[in-house]
Design a protein around this nucleic acid. Structure first.
Lengths: 193, 193
DNA sequence: GAGATCGGCTATCAGTTGTTAGCTAGCGGG
DNA sequence: CCCGCTAGCTAACAACTGATAGCCGATCTC
């Protein structure tokens, strides 16, 4: 049996997240993954269905968590500016705090087999649309100055992805410092006045 | 013999660039690459030394071209603001016009074997330092308002990397439109006034 | 305490991969 | 005409990979 929620399988997913981040999905072998949790490669199949299945659970879990964080962030107010501010803060904070999930989620899309790839791409498109609509609402209300809301939303999302690529927990800057600065960058991008 | 500059090897690099972009380095086989240029996998070895060698030439060539574009852009003026403006424009334009090179250059760093990886990482660090110094110069002269020049330079570089990931030549927006908007974003990030 | 289940192991399979070896058709120059 | 080079081919190798089969000790249940 391959119960996806057993404590051992969660441990395996965590180790896989680390390996996928450092080596990439293709370059990570089941033997690597087994060694990371103290067993041989074939033994992993007592806990997970397949290598691809581990990736699928990591990536869909990540996108759903990101969307949940976004919904929670924007639900707390009706003010367009404040909604975008909280959304960008949640976005940046998620990418700082869960940089490995975000990194793998962005990087390994092409290793994902159908129909999972389309599903994750759909969630990403939905996430992007949420940001675009926030920007359009703020622009229409005269708070933002932006040529293309679509481009601005791409730019803000790209900031998070980039952050996930270089941020380190033990770096010079604290998480709060990076979140604050990057959120400010995002608000500058949409021309907040 | 494996003359790196023969017309055939250039054709192979071009095909490899396309395949590495779409499938990734690990997932691209020599048989794939051969088929893309009308020959069998083993025949490629008449023109290139190895698969890794193809990647190395693509990535070092890309970083050197990017640095050259940067130097050319900043050499034309002494004004701090104008130097950053031209540097960001060059940065964004390169990532739009050579999106495949930039994409592979950013994505396949971990597929690069030593010492080539450190060499490319060194070039990237140098490129980032150039931007940081431009920002610091402009901030010291009172033109920019930014908490951390380092963070701002990361953000601007990340914009280019993100652009290379989603930009398509046949998309809605022209290259010039994207370059202008993204350059404006970059200047807003550093708080130009 | 017998039996079943869990969770590890080794052996093995079948497929794939980068690369080398060796052959050969075509072609240009003497 | 023939030598030698270029640039392709097939065959083959050695290594590796994800996954399966089957064994076995430990632990739990009744």
């Amino acid at each position: 049996m391959v119960r996806a929620s057993s404590p051992r399988s969660a441990e395996i997913r965590a180790a896989a997240l680390d390996l996928f981040t450092r080596l990439g999905y293709e370059a990570t072998t089941m033997a690597d993954l087994g060694a990371a949790v103290g067993m041989r490669g074939p033994s992993l199949y007592k806990h997970v269905a397949s290598k691809q299945d581990v990736l699928v659970e990591i990536m869909t879990g990540t996108m759903e968590a990101l969307l949940a964080a976004h919904r929670s962030a924007v639900a707390s107010t009706d003010d367009p500016v404040e909604r975008l501010r909280r959304a960008t803060e949640a976005h940046v904070r998620y990418h700082a705090r869960h940089r490995q999930e975000a990194f793998v989620g962005n990087r390994e899309l092409r290793s994902l087999v159908q129909p999972h790839r389309d599903r994750v791409l759909g969630l990403r498109a939905e996430y992007e649309r949420c940001f675009r609509e926030l920007i359009e609402a703020g622009a229409q209300a005269g708070h933002f100055t932006v040529g293309s809301a679509s481009l601005a939303s791409f730019a803000i999302l790209d900031l998070g992805m980039g952050l996930a690529a270089w941020y380190r927990e033990d770096g010079e800057l604290t998480e709060d410092a990076v979140v604050w600065q990057y959120s400010q960058f995002a608000l500058r991008i949409v021309g907040l006045r």
